[in-house]
Design a protein around this nucleic acid. Sequence first.
DNA 1: ACACCATACCGTACATGTACGGAAAGAATT
DNA 2: AATTCTTTCCGTACATGTACGGTATGGTGT
Lengths: 214, 214
Amino acid sequence: MPPSVQTRREKQKAELRSELVEAAHKLVQEEGYEGLTIRKLAKRVGYAPMSVYSYFADKQDILFALAEDAFETLARRIEEHSSDDPIEALQAVMTEYAAFGLGNPNEYRTVFMTEKTRLPEGRSYEDMEEGNPAMKVLISRVEACVAAGKLQGDPRAIATMLWAVGHGTISLLITFPFYPFGDPQAFVKRMCDLTLATLSTQNVPPLTETPVNC
Amino acid sequence: MPPSVQTRREKQKAELRSELVEAAHKLVQEEGYEGLTIRKLAKRVGYAPMSVYSYFADKQDILFALAEDAFETLARRIEEHSSDDPIEALQAVMTEYAAFGLGNPNEYRTVFMTEKTRLPEGRSYEDMEEGNPAMKVLISRVEACVAAGKLQGDPRAIATMLWAVGHGTISLLITFPFYPFGDPQAFVKRMCDLTLATLSTQNVPPLTETPVNC
DNA sequence: ACACCATACCGTACATGTACGGAAAGAATT
DNA sequence: AATTCTTTCCGTACATGTACGGTATGGTGT
């Protein structure tokens, strides 16, 4: 079908939106995270403050757009760190994930530490999972481990459990920077090893099932 | 020493502070979490809005005071759920901790999911650890397990790792309520079992040390 | 050509957290 | 008793997020 008026308009709207995201990005770079305010952002692109709301539902939405960019960078960085050994490749995911979280605490927080009361704009959780490129890599590398016989069970369940461990570790490190975790990277590695050690010795059933014992 | 003027004043100040906390508590009960505003709170106790700041550094400080109350309740609830078997007693901590987090997401968030840039009022992390009664119980039950030979290694390190796992699990459940974790309690149990299984098979060195293997 | 309407943008207004300086009152010191 | 200091409380002011309604502009249907 030819580019209708409708689609041209949508394209223009998308362009303006990404222009706003870019401006927001610069603002954060220049003035830090809390230097990003709706009014400043609007002034930057020559709009009235309220006009920003034509492109973003609320401020959270802007932060989320920024964070999504960051997570694409993360995914790329993860894919640069791979290995022939599927377990090592999996460990690399955790390591890079942790390095990213510790290096970009604000982005990490907006994506993983603010409640998702509503999924953003009618997406299912699957879209969300596919939407987060980092999570996508995690799952695929878990699948590789399962395929290689290094892990056994349901890949999604394994990935979710790894996610929980990784997230717990990173978010504690971010939230309690003064707590004596020792070297952050070492702590991450320990947690990661701990989890993989057990996961590799047992079959992991899918998540919907309730475990048998007790 | 006799109660000086100084101490009487401090006592009165503390009373007024807890009066404010109580009022805040009622406000939250009546109007929900975001119904708690400085202005409403001040009006409730007959002060001008700014006077609240004589008793609390900022709004976060109020939320924290509320959350501390909640965590004392949690600690009491945990101590009601014990067991002769130290491992079971430890599992009970995790179970109650999870139930609490899922049942009081707001309190959980303010305590464990908002950055602690500064420790509140010159406390060390140890005070903070001692200050959180739930964490205190966790550590003591870990120590019991170590004493009974069910776990081996540094109790603080073990407790911290358990904390990381528990926190990761709970905060994901809170943050992504729509993600298909399956039954929350079952997921928590799985994570807990997973961790304890491995921890029980290996010696856990203190946190300050870096693990030997690469 | 005309009326209609969706869309994009804006102006105003409000509730909120909180910085700042001031006032009042009581304690401490002289 | 007079003065100075400290503590408590407040009034004002500002930046912020955002709700609401208005307006203009350009495309659509008659």
